[in-house]
Design a protein around this nucleic acid. Structure first.
Lengths: 170, 170
DNA sequence: CTAGGACCTCAACTTAACTTGAGGTCAAGG
DNA sequence: CCTTGACCTCAAGTTAAGTTGAGGTCCTAG
Protein backbone atom coordinates (compact mmCIF):
# COMPACT_ATOMS: atom_id res chain seq x y z
CA UNK A 1 0.00 0.00 0.00
CA UNK A 2 3.01 2.20 0.26
CA UNK A 3 3.03 4.62 -2.60
CA UNK A 4 6.57 4.77 -3.88
CA UNK A 5 8.34 7.76 -5.52
CA UNK A 6 7.07 7.97 -9.11
CA UNK A 7 4.46 10.79 -9.26
CA UNK A 8 1.17 9.11 -10.16
CA UNK A 9 -1.81 11.45 -10.40
CA UNK A 10 -2.73 12.80 -6.98
CA UNK A 11 -0.98 10.66 -4.39
CA UNK A 12 -2.52 10.18 -0.97
CA UNK A 13 0.88 10.17 0.61
CA UNK A 14 3.77 12.45 -0.30
CA UNK A 15 7.50 11.91 -0.54
CA UNK A 16 9.71 14.64 0.82
CA UNK A 17 10.52 15.77 -2.69
CA UNK A 18 6.88 16.09 -3.58
CA UNK A 19 6.07 17.96 -0.43
CA UNK A 20 8.99 20.26 -1.12
CA UNK A 21 7.84 21.02 -4.65
CA UNK A 22 4.23 21.52 -3.69
CA UNK A 23 4.86 23.63 -0.63
CA UNK A 24 7.67 25.60 -2.19
CA UNK A 25 10.22 24.96 0.54
CA UNK A 26 13.52 23.12 0.21
CA UNK A 27 13.85 19.49 1.20
CA UNK A 28 16.45 20.48 3.75
CA UNK A 29 13.93 22.83 5.30
CA UNK A 30 11.43 20.04 5.65
CA UNK A 31 14.05 17.94 7.38
CA UNK A 32 14.74 20.90 9.59
CA UNK A 33 11.08 21.43 10.42
CA UNK A 34 10.73 17.79 11.24
CA UNK A 35 13.74 17.92 13.54
CA UNK A 36 12.10 20.88 15.27
CA UNK A 37 8.86 18.96 15.64
CA UNK A 38 6.84 21.22 13.36
CA UNK A 39 5.87 18.42 11.01
CA UNK A 40 5.87 14.66 11.23
CA UNK A 41 6.31 11.79 8.83
CA UNK A 42 5.95 8.06 8.66
CA UNK A 43 8.73 6.06 7.13
CA UNK A 44 8.56 3.73 4.14
CA UNK A 45 10.15 0.28 4.20
CA UNK A 46 13.28 1.86 2.78
CA UNK A 47 13.38 4.45 5.59
CA UNK A 48 12.14 7.29 3.43
CA UNK A 49 9.78 9.95 4.70
CA UNK A 50 6.14 9.68 3.78
CA UNK A 51 3.86 12.60 4.52
CA UNK A 52 0.12 12.64 4.89
CA UNK A 53 -1.60 15.26 2.76
CA UNK A 54 -2.29 17.21 5.92
CA UNK A 55 1.43 18.00 6.06
CA UNK A 56 1.03 20.30 3.08
CA UNK A 57 -1.47 22.29 5.07
CA UNK A 58 0.86 22.49 8.02
CA UNK A 59 3.75 23.70 5.92
CA UNK A 60 1.61 26.38 4.29
CA UNK A 61 0.54 27.49 7.68
CA UNK A 62 4.10 27.63 8.94
CA UNK A 63 5.31 29.71 6.03
CA UNK A 64 2.51 32.20 6.16
CA UNK A 65 2.76 32.64 9.89
CA UNK A 66 6.50 33.08 9.61
CA UNK A 67 6.12 35.62 6.88
CA UNK A 68 4.17 37.91 9.14
CA UNK A 69 6.89 37.78 11.71
CA UNK A 70 5.98 34.91 14.00
CA UNK A 71 8.87 32.76 15.14
CA UNK A 72 9.15 29.04 14.53
CA UNK A 73 9.06 28.51 18.26
CA UNK A 74 5.67 30.18 18.53
CA UNK A 75 4.39 28.36 15.51
CA UNK A 76 5.59 25.10 16.93
CA UNK A 77 3.76 25.82 20.15
CA UNK A 78 0.58 26.55 18.26
CA UNK A 79 0.87 23.48 16.07
CA UNK A 80 1.51 21.36 19.11
CA UNK A 81 -2.15 21.77 19.96
CA UNK A 82 -3.08 19.96 16.77
CA UNK A 83 -2.90 16.18 16.75
CA UNK A 84 0.18 15.33 14.72
CA UNK A 85 -1.01 11.81 14.13
CA UNK A 86 -4.39 12.18 12.45
CA UNK A 87 -5.90 14.91 10.34
CA UNK A 88 -6.83 17.75 12.70
CA UNK A 89 -10.52 18.02 13.44
CA UNK A 90 -12.61 21.12 13.55
CA UNK A 91 -12.15 21.76 17.21
CA UNK A 92 -8.41 21.48 16.80
CA UNK A 93 -8.33 24.35 14.35
CA UNK A 94 -10.77 26.19 16.52
CA UNK A 95 -8.41 25.95 19.45
CA UNK A 96 -5.52 27.20 17.38
CA UNK A 97 -7.55 30.02 15.96
CA UNK A 98 -8.68 31.18 19.35
CA UNK A 99 -5.15 31.11 20.68
CA UNK A 100 -3.82 33.16 17.80
CA UNK A 101 -6.70 35.46 17.27
CA UNK A 102 -5.55 38.12 19.68
CA UNK A 103 -1.96 37.89 18.59
CA UNK A 104 -2.94 38.35 14.97
CA UNK A 105 -5.33 41.16 15.80
CA UNK A 106 -2.61 42.86 17.71
CA UNK A 107 -0.14 42.62 14.89
CA UNK A 108 -2.70 43.93 12.47
CA UNK A 109 -3.37 46.89 14.73
CA UNK A 110 0.35 47.48 15.01
CA UNK A 111 0.82 47.50 11.28
CA UNK A 112 -2.08 49.83 10.71
CA UNK A 113 -0.75 52.15 13.31
CA UNK A 114 2.62 52.27 11.63
CA UNK A 115 1.04 52.91 8.27
CA UNK A 116 -1.40 55.51 9.47
CA UNK A 117 1.22 57.21 11.56
CA UNK A 118 3.27 57.93 8.52
CA UNK A 119 0.24 59.23 6.70
CA UNK A 120 -1.00 61.34 9.58
CA UNK A 121 2.29 62.95 10.25
CA UNK A 122 2.51 63.95 6.66
CA UNK A 123 -1.06 65.16 6.58
CA UNK A 124 -0.77 67.35 9.62
CA UNK A 125 2.55 68.76 8.56
CA UNK A 126 4.06 68.51 12.01
CA UNK A 127 7.08 66.75 10.55
CA UNK A 128 7.53 64.57 13.53
CA UNK A 129 6.44 61.18 14.71
CA UNK A 130 7.04 61.60 18.39
CA UNK A 131 5.27 64.91 18.47
CA UNK A 132 1.75 65.15 17.03
CA UNK A 133 -0.71 62.38 17.94
CA UNK A 134 2.07 60.15 19.12
CA UNK A 135 3.81 62.48 21.44
CA UNK A 136 2.87 62.13 25.05
CA UNK A 137 2.18 65.33 26.92
CA UNK A 138 5.16 66.98 28.63
CA UNK A 139 7.70 64.73 26.91
CA UNK A 140 7.94 62.63 30.06
CA UNK A 141 8.87 59.51 28.14
CA UNK A 142 12.03 58.71 30.03
CA UNK A 143 10.16 57.46 33.11
CA UNK A 144 10.24 53.72 32.64
CA UNK A 145 12.66 53.22 29.82
CA UNK A 146 10.64 50.60 28.01
CA UNK A 147 10.57 51.16 24.28
CA UNK A 148 8.51 53.14 21.83
CA UNK A 149 5.32 53.41 23.84
CA UNK A 150 3.30 55.48 21.49
CA UNK A 151 3.72 53.33 18.45
CA UNK A 152 3.74 49.98 20.17
CA UNK A 153 0.27 48.71 20.76
CA UNK A 154 1.09 46.47 23.65
CA UNK A 155 3.91 44.17 24.74
CA UNK A 156 2.47 41.05 23.05
CA UNK A 157 1.47 37.92 24.88
CA UNK A 158 3.25 35.44 22.68
CA UNK A 159 6.13 37.84 22.31
CA UNK A 160 8.82 35.63 20.75
CA UNK A 161 9.40 37.27 17.38
CA UNK A 162 12.84 37.78 15.84
CA UNK A 163 13.26 41.16 17.44
CA UNK A 164 15.43 40.64 20.44
CA UNK A 165 13.39 41.97 23.35
CA UNK A 166 14.85 43.92 26.20
CA UNK A 167 18.54 43.50 26.95
CA UNK A 168 17.96 40.43 29.08
CA UNK A 169 20.89 39.63 31.25
CA UNK A 170 21.11 35.89 31.45
CA UNK B 1 27.62 74.56 23.67
CA UNK B 2 28.11 70.87 23.91
CA UNK B 3 25.68 69.42 26.36
CA UNK B 4 27.63 67.01 28.53
CA UNK B 5 26.30 63.91 30.33
CA UNK B 6 24.38 65.11 33.39
CA UNK B 7 20.62 64.93 32.55
CA UNK B 8 19.33 68.49 32.78
CA UNK B 9 15.63 68.91 32.03
CA UNK B 10 14.90 68.16 28.37
CA UNK B 11 18.21 68.21 26.56
CA UNK B 12 18.35 69.22 22.92
CA UNK B 13 21.02 66.67 22.27
CA UNK B 14 21.16 63.15 23.66
CA UNK B 15 23.98 60.96 24.88
CA UNK B 16 23.92 57.34 23.84
CA UNK B 17 22.81 56.34 27.32
CA UNK B 18 19.90 58.74 27.24
CA UNK B 19 18.84 57.62 23.81
CA UNK B 20 19.03 54.03 24.97
CA UNK B 21 16.87 54.69 28.01
CA UNK B 22 14.31 56.72 26.13
CA UNK B 23 14.04 54.45 23.14
CA UNK B 24 14.15 51.24 25.13
CA UNK B 25 17.02 49.65 23.23
CA UNK B 26 20.43 48.69 24.55
CA UNK B 27 23.43 50.95 24.05
CA UNK B 28 25.13 48.15 22.15
CA UNK B 29 22.18 48.07 19.78
CA UNK B 30 22.53 51.76 19.09
CA UNK B 31 26.19 51.25 18.30
CA UNK B 32 25.15 48.43 16.04
CA UNK B 33 22.52 50.52 14.26
CA UNK B 34 25.01 53.26 13.75
CA UNK B 35 27.51 50.83 12.29
CA UNK B 36 24.78 49.69 9.91
CA UNK B 37 24.02 53.24 8.94
CA UNK B 38 20.53 53.28 10.40
CA UNK B 39 21.23 56.20 12.70
CA UNK B 40 23.91 58.86 12.87
CA UNK B 41 25.60 60.86 15.56
CA UNK B 42 27.92 63.77 16.01
CA UNK B 43 30.81 63.45 18.39
CA UNK B 44 31.56 65.54 21.44
CA UNK B 45 35.05 66.88 22.12
CA UNK B 46 35.71 63.74 24.13
CA UNK B 47 34.67 61.52 21.18
CA UNK B 48 31.33 60.60 22.68
CA UNK B 49 28.20 60.21 20.59
CA UNK B 50 25.68 63.04 20.59
CA UNK B 51 22.31 62.45 19.02
CA UNK B 52 19.85 64.98 17.71
CA UNK B 53 16.34 64.54 19.07
CA UNK B 54 15.31 63.27 15.66
CA UNK B 55 17.30 60.12 16.37
CA UNK B 56 14.69 59.08 18.93
CA UNK B 57 12.11 59.18 16.20
CA UNK B 58 14.27 57.11 13.91
CA UNK B 59 14.87 54.47 16.55
CA UNK B 60 11.16 54.22 17.32
CA UNK B 61 10.50 53.81 13.68
CA UNK B 62 13.13 51.10 13.34
CA UNK B 63 11.77 49.07 16.24
CA UNK B 64 8.17 49.25 15.16
CA UNK B 65 8.96 48.35 11.59
CA UNK B 66 11.10 45.48 12.76
CA UNK B 67 8.43 44.25 15.03
CA UNK B 68 6.07 43.72 12.12
CA UNK B 69 8.64 41.63 10.36
CA UNK B 70 10.59 44.07 8.22
CA UNK B 71 14.32 43.48 8.05
CA UNK B 72 16.94 45.99 9.08
CA UNK B 73 18.18 46.03 5.51
CA UNK B 74 14.79 47.17 4.25
CA UNK B 75 14.44 49.67 7.03
CA UNK B 76 17.87 51.02 6.28
CA UNK B 77 16.92 51.41 2.65
CA UNK B 78 13.80 53.31 3.61
CA UNK B 79 15.60 55.53 6.08
CA UNK B 80 18.26 56.27 3.52
CA UNK B 81 15.70 58.42 1.72
CA UNK B 82 15.55 60.69 4.75
CA UNK B 83 18.30 63.27 5.19
CA UNK B 84 20.45 61.97 8.01
CA UNK B 85 21.95 65.35 8.60
CA UNK B 86 19.00 67.65 9.31
CA UNK B 87 15.55 66.98 10.71
CA UNK B 88 13.57 65.32 7.93
CA UNK B 89 11.08 67.60 6.22
CA UNK B 90 7.53 66.84 5.28
CA UNK B 91 8.32 65.65 1.79
CA UNK B 92 10.93 63.29 3.20
CA UNK B 93 8.38 61.48 5.30
CA UNK B 94 5.99 61.63 2.41
CA UNK B 95 8.46 59.81 0.21
CA UNK B 96 9.04 57.18 2.84
CA UNK B 97 5.36 56.75 3.44
CA UNK B 98 4.61 56.32 -0.23
CA UNK B 99 7.36 53.77 -0.61
CA UNK B 100 6.13 51.71 2.31
CA UNK B 101 2.45 52.13 1.88
CA UNK B 102 1.97 49.18 -0.44
CA UNK B 103 4.31 46.98 1.54
CA UNK B 104 2.43 47.72 4.73
CA UNK B 105 -0.93 47.27 3.05
CA UNK B 106 0.24 43.97 1.71
CA UNK B 107 1.36 42.73 5.07
CA UNK B 108 -1.89 43.81 6.64
CA UNK B 109 -3.81 41.94 3.97
CA UNK B 110 -1.63 38.91 4.59
CA UNK B 111 -2.24 38.96 8.28
CA UNK B 112 -5.96 39.35 7.87
CA UNK B 113 -6.00 36.50 5.46
CA UNK B 114 -4.22 34.27 7.90
CA UNK B 115 -6.57 35.26 10.67
CA UNK B 116 -9.72 34.94 8.62
CA UNK B 117 -8.58 31.72 7.07
CA UNK B 118 -8.47 30.10 10.43
CA UNK B 119 -11.89 31.44 11.24
CA UNK B 120 -13.41 30.51 7.93
CA UNK B 121 -12.13 27.01 7.92
CA UNK B 122 -13.61 26.50 11.30
CA UNK B 123 -16.85 28.11 10.28
CA UNK B 124 -17.36 26.08 7.17
CA UNK B 125 -16.38 22.86 8.85
CA UNK B 126 -14.25 21.70 5.96
CA UNK B 127 -11.40 21.05 8.35
CA UNK B 128 -8.79 21.97 5.83
CA UNK B 129 -6.86 25.01 4.79
CA UNK B 130 -5.78 23.89 1.37
CA UNK B 131 -9.24 22.73 0.49
CA UNK B 132 -12.17 25.11 0.95
CA UNK B 133 -11.72 28.70 -0.23
CA UNK B 134 -7.99 28.28 -0.38
CA UNK B 135 -7.80 25.19 -2.44
CA UNK B 136 -7.24 25.77 -6.12
CA UNK B 137 -9.40 23.75 -8.49
CA UNK B 138 -8.08 20.35 -9.56
CA UNK B 139 -5.30 20.33 -6.98
CA UNK B 140 -2.84 21.35 -9.67
CA UNK B 141 -0.59 23.14 -7.24
CA UNK B 142 2.59 21.34 -8.17
CA UNK B 143 3.01 23.22 -11.45
CA UNK B 144 5.47 25.91 -10.56
CA UNK B 145 6.67 24.88 -7.13
CA UNK B 146 6.64 28.35 -5.66
CA UNK B 147 5.25 28.41 -2.16
CA UNK B 148 1.85 28.58 -0.50
CA UNK B 149 0.04 30.40 -3.30
CA UNK B 150 -3.37 30.53 -1.78
CA UNK B 151 -2.42 32.07 1.48
CA UNK B 152 0.33 34.30 0.24
CA UNK B 153 -1.01 37.53 -1.08
CA UNK B 154 1.82 38.28 -3.44
CA UNK B 155 5.59 37.79 -3.54
CA UNK B 156 6.38 41.16 -1.93
CA UNK B 157 8.29 43.92 -3.64
CA UNK B 158 10.66 44.69 -0.83
CA UNK B 159 10.92 41.00 -0.04
CA UNK B 160 13.85 40.92 2.41
CA UNK B 161 12.29 39.69 5.62
CA UNK B 162 13.87 37.07 7.91
CA UNK B 163 12.19 34.21 6.12
CA UNK B 164 14.76 32.75 3.80
CA UNK B 165 13.15 32.91 0.36
CA UNK B 166 13.50 30.23 -2.25
CA UNK B 167 16.40 27.82 -1.99
CA UNK B 168 18.69 30.15 -3.89
CA UNK B 169 21.73 28.38 -5.13
CA UNK B 170 24.54 30.86 -4.87
C1' DC C 1 44.52 62.81 43.27
C1' DT C 2 41.99 59.02 42.85
C1' DA C 3 37.68 56.49 42.36
C1' DG C 4 33.31 55.97 39.82
C1' DG C 5 30.34 56.20 35.93
C1' DA C 6 29.55 56.76 31.37
C1' DC C 7 31.66 56.40 27.35
C1' DC C 8 34.99 54.49 23.49
C1' DT C 9 36.71 50.44 20.03
C1' DC C 10 37.17 46.01 18.34
C1' DA C 11 36.79 41.20 18.33
C1' DA C 12 34.43 37.26 19.59
C1' DC C 13 30.31 34.98 21.00
C1' DT C 14 25.09 33.85 20.55
C1' DT C 15 20.50 32.44 18.55
C1' DA C 16 17.33 31.45 14.96
C1' DA C 17 16.59 29.56 10.76
C1' DC C 18 18.39 27.46 7.39
C1' DT C 19 21.93 25.48 3.72
C1' DT C 20 25.80 22.75 2.26
C1' DG C 21 28.52 18.78 2.03
C1' DA C 22 30.38 14.26 2.77
C1' DG C 23 29.47 9.63 2.77
C1' DG C 24 25.96 5.97 2.32
C1' DT C 25 21.28 3.34 0.99
C1' DC C 26 17.73 1.88 -2.28
C1' DA C 27 15.07 0.70 -6.37
C1' DA C 28 14.15 1.01 -11.33
C1' DG C 29 16.08 1.22 -16.08
C1' DG C 30 19.49 -0.01 -19.71
C1' DC D 1 25.40 -5.63 -13.20
C1' DC D 2 25.90 -0.92 -13.01
C1' DT D 3 24.41 3.64 -13.12
C1' DT D 4 21.20 7.22 -11.91
C1' DG D 5 18.09 9.86 -9.08
C1' DA D 6 15.85 10.36 -4.95
C1' DC D 7 16.47 9.57 -0.54
C1' DC D 8 19.07 9.01 4.21
C1' DT D 9 22.15 11.00 8.44
C1' DC D 10 25.05 13.95 10.70
C1' DA D 11 28.24 17.67 11.09
C1' DA D 12 29.59 22.03 9.83
C1' DG D 13 28.83 26.50 7.57
C1' DT D 14 25.97 30.94 6.85
C1' DT D 15 23.26 35.28 7.70
C1' DA D 16 20.89 38.55 10.46
C1' DA D 17 20.65 40.86 14.51
C1' DG D 18 22.50 41.63 18.38
C1' DT D 19 25.30 40.84 23.00
C1' DT D 20 29.46 40.29 25.75
C1' DG D 21 33.97 41.30 27.11
C1' DA D 22 38.58 43.12 27.39
C1' DG D 23 41.21 47.04 27.55
C1' DG D 24 41.28 52.12 27.40
C1' DT D 25 39.59 57.30 27.83
C1' DC D 26 37.31 61.18 30.21
C1' DC D 27 35.10 64.02 33.48
C1' DT D 28 33.12 64.88 38.01
C1' DA D 29 32.92 64.15 43.05
C1' DG D 30 35.08 63.06 47.39
Amino acid sequence: MDKLPGPVGVPQVLTVGELARRSGVAVSTLHFYEAKGLIRSERSVGNQRRYARAALRRVSFIRVAQRVGISLADIAAALASLPATAAPGREDWARLSAAWRSELDERIAQLKKLRDTLDDCIGCGCLSIDRCRLRNPGDKLAEEGAGPRRLLVKPSVVGAHPVRDKPTRR
